[in-house]
């Protein structure tokens, strides 16, 4: 189990947990980032935002918030 921010590019991941305030959690969930769902890291370079594929859409998350999403490599 690792924070999403540390996941390597191109890997398919499963979300295990979300830490963070209520508002943030709801925003993530409405975009399909719920515990248990499968995501893929499209782009993760340097210290900028990370780009994900979630249920067929592209979602960008800042570094700060991607530290709060815990994932495991499938």
């Amino acid at each position: 189990m690792i924070p999403l921010a540390m996941a390597p590019e191109g890997k398919i991941l499963r979300i295990v947990g979300i830490r963070g305030g209520r508002g943030i959690m709801q925003r993530l969930m409405e975009l399909g980032l719920v515990p248990g769902s499968t995501i893929r890291v499209i782009k993760s370079t340097g210290r900028g935002p990370i780009l994900l594929e979630v249920k067929g859409s592209r979602i960008a998350l800042g570094r700060g918030i991607s530290m709060k999403l815990l994932v495991e490599v499938r």
Partner: peptide
């Protein structure tokens, strides 16, 4: 505010 954004097709 934290950066959460959809990049639309």
């Amino acid at each position: 505010s934290p950066f959460i954004l959809e990049l639309p097709p």
